[in-house]
Design a protein around this nucleic acid. Structure first.
Lengths: 152, 152
DNA sequence: TCTAATTAGTTTCATTTGTAACTAGTTGTT
DNA sequence: AACAACTAGTTACAAATGAAACTAATTAGA
C-alpha cells in the first residue's frame, strides 16, 4: 500500500493542502471529540473565544472562516453545555459578547496543551527555521487566497 | 475588518492549515461546481482517475483520503452522468477499474488547466524556491501526519 | 476442500451541513 | 422623524455526510 505515484494532481497545491489538512484535523479531533465530546466547530469556537474573550459571533465567523449558521449552532450548543456564556452588548443590541464559563475555561486549559503537544509531534520532523519558513509561506498564501472575498 | 490578532491559536499549525485549505477549496469549487455541476468529491475522483486510469475505488480512497462511501457515491453519480465508466477486473471479482469516458476526459481537459491557472495565481506571491520549499515541507508533514493510520 | 476471516464496495439511517429566508436591531438619508 | 438599506444572528429545510451494517468475492487455515 501507500503507492507513491508522482502525478500532476499530487503536485497540485490546493489538493495537497486539503488532503493534509483533513488528515491532521481528523487526528486532532480524536482528542477533543472522544475525550470531551466536542465537535471540531465547537472546539474551534472555544479556542478563539478562549484566546479573545468577548468576541461577537461575527468576529468568530471572520476569524475561523466558519459560516454563520455553523457558529450560531456551535455557540448555542456550547451555551447549553455550560461551556460558554453570552452577554448582551451595551453598544449594539444585535450582538452579544462571548466568554468561556469556568467549566469552559477548564476544558480549554486541558485541551489546548494537548493540541500543542500534538502539533509539536507533527512538526518534529522540521527544523525551527523550516517551521518559520512554512508559516511565512502560509501567511502569503492566506493573503492571496481571500483578499476581497466574503464567505458568509 | 481583517483584524490581525496574533494569538496562540492563529499560530497553531493545524488550525492555519485548515482555514487556509477550506478557503482555497471554496474558491476552486467555484470553477467546477458552478460551471460543470461537479461537487468537490466528484471532481477529486475525476482528477485522480484522469491521471491514473484504471484505478480501483479503493485506490482512489487511499490516494484522496476520502472515505469509502464518499468514493462510492461520487463514482456512482459520475457514471450516471456518463463521465466515468467501470470495467470489471479480471483478477478480482470484487473490484472494478475506473476510467474517464470520452465526455469525462473532455471535462477533465477543460477543468484541469483552469485549476492550474488558479494555483499559479495563488502561488504568484511565492518565488520558485519558496514554492519548492513549501512543497517539501508539506511532504514532511504528510509523512508525519498519517504514518500508520487507516482512515477508511 | 470446507470454513473462517478478510477485503471491496454498497446501502441504510441518523446526524451534520449550507443556502436561503427570516427576525430584530442599527445606520443613513431625506 | 420616518423610511429604506444594511448588519447580527437564528431557523427551516433540503442535501451531504459518515458510522455501521450489509453483500459478495477472495484468501487463509485446518
Amino acid at each position: 500500500m501507500n503507492e507513491k505515484i508522482k502525478t500532476r494532481l499530487s503536485a497540485f497545491l490546493p489538493y495537497r493542502l486539503s488532503v493534509l489538512s483533513n488528515t491532521i484535523s481528523k487526528n486532532i479531533a480524536a482528542i477533543y471529540s472522544t475525550e470531551f465530546g466536542l465537535s471540531m466547530w465547537q472546539w474551534r469556537v472555544m479556542a478563539v473565544v478562549g484566546e479573545s474573550p468577548g468576541l461577537t459571533a461575527t468576529q468568530v465567523t471572520n476569524q475561523t472562516a466558519m459560516d454563520k449558521p455553523a457558529v450560531s449552532r456551535a455557540v448555542a450548543s456550547l451555551i447549553e453545555q455550560g461551556l460558554l456564556k453570552r452577554e448582551a452588548s451595551q453598544e449594539d443590541g444585535r450582538t452579544s459578547l462571548l466568554y468561556l464559563t469556568r467549566a469552559g475555561q477548564n476544558i480549554y486549559d486541558r485541551i489546548f496543551p494537548r493540541a500543542l503537544t500534538h502539533e509539536t509531534e507533527l512538526t518534529s520532523g522540521l527544523t525551527r527555521a523550516e517551521l518559520e519558513t512554512f508559516n511565512a509561506l502560509l501567511d502569503k498564501l492566506a493573503d492571496k487566497s481571500s483578499p476581497k472575498k466574503k464567505l458568509w
